[in-house]
């Protein structure tokens, strides 16, 4: 089936993007990614410790999956850190995609909006295809989009919280006000119904990690999320019925037995 979902021109059939961290084992990570049907995966860079061999195994497993790689700048607190990490990522992963994370608060890992704009401008000028991890603030998202970020990744809730959509109004507003932007909800989703909810709103995709990796059965949860994302997308395309505050019988009233048309 043709997909109209793309990230900076790269077409993806799955609207679910998964992270590669926190799985009980590398093998389960690989199985979960495969089961989800996702075609893009997030990953990162850290200082190489020659005594630790785990990094090599991870890289080998990821390469076997032949997915689109979406490197992040997780943990960065300054524009310089984020730009340098992005440049190192581009060299290693051979992609212009960068999930731009610039943290402004260590307690809830909330993005730093002003620095995010500066870093995005710098990276776009340097040829990157920037996917900023941002809050659901309309003005911030508008500024990022105007800078040239064609893909925005607003949070639903703080990273790893699993709380689901904390501000449905803000997310709905983003969708309505930025109809041409590719909007991927990133962070804070806990269960598949959360993913379905944002897809029903018309979001283009969902990025998550903890909700799958920390499930009792990550492989089964990966399948559940992929089904939820697909269901939500279909529902959005189908168009939901209008809400009303009163009941309306679905079974025809005409021909109902046991009542009389005229009073006795």
């Amino acid at each position: 089936m043709h997909s109209d979902f793309n990230i900076y021109g790269t077409q993806l059939n799955s609207r679910l993007i998964l992270g590669s961290a926190l799985y009980p084992s590398p093998a389960l990570m690989q199985q979960a990614l495969q089961q989800s049907g996702c075609e893009a995966v997030t990953l990162s860079l850290r200082r190489q410790a020659p005594e630790q061999q785990g990094g090599e195994q991870f890289w080998q497993l990821i390469r076997e999956l032949k997915l689109q790689l979406l490197p992040n700048t997780a943990g960065c607190h300054s524009v310089q850190q984020a730009v340098t990490l992005a440049q190192m990522s581009r060299e290693i992963f051979q992609t212009n995609w960068i999930k731009l994370e610039l943290i402004g608060d260590d307690y809830n890992l909330q993005p730093e909006p002003m620095l995010l704009l500066q870093a995005a401008e710098h990276l776009l000028a340097d040829g990157f295809e920037v996917l900023p991890y941002c809050t659901d603030d309309l003005v911030l998202c508008k500024r990022l989009y105007e800078l040239g970020c064609k893909v925005l990744m607003p949070w639903a809730a703080p990273i790893g919280s699993g709380l689901g959509v904390l501000n449905p109004y803000a997310l709905r507003t983003l969708r309505e006000r930025l109809p041409d932007a590719t909007l991927i909800v990133d962070a804070g989703l806990g269960v598949p119904s959360h993913a379905c909810q944002v897809m029903e709103m018309g979001f283009d995709g969902v990025l998550l990690n903890s909700a799958v990796a920390l499930a009792k059965d990550p492989v089964l949860m990966a399948l559940a999320f992929s089904q939820a994302v697909a269901a939500g997308r279909s529902a959005f395309l189908a168009g939901a019925m209008p809400k009303q505050d009163f009941a309306s019988p679905s079974t025809p009233v005409l021909g109902m037995p046991f009542w009389l048309q005229e009073a006795l």
């Binding site: 590669s20 961290a21 990953l43 990162s44 850290r46 990094g55 991870f58 990821i62 992040n72 997780a74």
Partner: peptide, 10 residues
């Protein structure tokens, strides 16, 4: 000097 390599990330 920082020398970095791929790791898992979200």
């Amino acid at each position: 000097l920082d020398i970095v390599s791929p790791i898992a990330g979200g």
